[in-house]
C-alpha cells in the first residue's frame, strides 16, 4: 500500500524522479498504476450491471438508476439504463449517441470537453490508457491489487469548475465502484458488478 502510493507520487512529482531512476530494478518489482493499467489493457470486451444513486441539489431524494455497461476495447462504451426508465448512452470514439423516448441524438464530444473528460475517466481506465487519464486528471493510487482505490482530480480549471473529484474502486482488472463528486456539491455513486462471459 505504501509502495504503491510512492510510485504514483514518483510519476506525478518531478523532483522525486531522481529516486525512481536511481533504483529502476526496485521499481520493476513493485505494483503500481502501470501494472494496474496493463491489466485493464488486456481486456478486449466486458459487460457489467450497475446500480447508481445520484444526489442532486434540486432533488429532495436521490435518483436511483440501474442498468448495464458494455465496453469494447479501446473506445466504445455503452451505458444502458433499464430502470426506472429506458435510456442509453453510447460512446464511440468522439461521438456520443444518446437515445431516449424513441429519439437518438448525436453529440460531438469535441464540442463538449467537460463531458468528454468525464467519459474519459471511465473509458481510459477500462482501456488501461494511463496517458489519456493523466491528460485530464492527477491520478493517485492506493491499496493492493486485490483492493485498490484511484482518486482523480482535474488537471485544469475548466474541468475543475465542473468536477471536484472522481473516486474509483476495484479488484485486479475489474472496476467495482465509481463515485463522482461535482463542484456544485452534487454527487453520484455507481456500483458495478461484472457479468462473466
Amino acid at each position: 500500500m505504501h509502495s504503491g502510493n510512492r510510485v504514483a507520487n514518483t510519476v506525478l512529482h518531478l523532483f522525486s524522479l531522481a529516486l525512481c531512476c536511481a533504483s529502476p530494478q526496485l521499481l520493476a518489482a513493485e505494483w503500481g498504476m502501470p501494472q494496474l493499467m496493463s491489466g485493464f489493457a488486456a481486456v478486449e470486451e466486458s459487460r457489467a450491471s450497475f446500480k447508481e444513486e445520484k444526489h442532486l441539489s434540486m432533488l429532495s431524494e436521490p435518483l436511483k438508476l440501474s442498468g448495464t455497461l458494455h465496453y469494447v476495447r479501446p473506445d466504445q462504451i455503452e451505458k444502458r439504463i433499464t430502470q426506472p426508465y429506458p435510456e442509453s448512452f453510447r460512446i464511440n470514439r468522439d461521438r456520443l449517441d444518446w437515445e431516449n423516448q424513441g429519439r437518438t441524438r448525436t453529440l460531438s464530444l469535441r464540442s463538449q470537453p467537460q463531458i468528454w473528460a468525464l467519459a474519459e475517466s471511465l473509458r481510459a481506465t477500462l482501456a488501461g490508457d494511463l496517458p489519456a487519464l493523466r491528460k485530464h486528471y492527477k491520478v493517485k493510487l492506493q491499496g493492493t491489487p486485490m483492493q485498490w482505490n484511484i482518486t482523480l482530480e482535474p488537471r485544469y480549471d475548466s474541468l475543475a469548475q465542473y468536477i471536484e473529484q472522481i473516486r474509483m474502486q476495484g479488484r485486479e482488472n475489474q472496476l467495482r465502484q465509481v463515485e463522482i463528486i461535482e463542484a456544485s456539491g452534487d454527487h453520484s455513486l455507481m456500483r458495478i458488478e461484472e457479468i462473466p462471459n
Binding site: K54, F89, L96, Q112, I115, D186
Partner: peptide, 12 residues
C-alpha cells in the same frame, strides 16, 4: 432524465 444524464451539470 436530463438532470441524470451527462448533460445534467450544464442543465441545472
Amino acid at each position: 432524465r436530463l438532470l441524470a444524464s451527462p448533460l445534467g451539470g450544464a442543465v441545472q
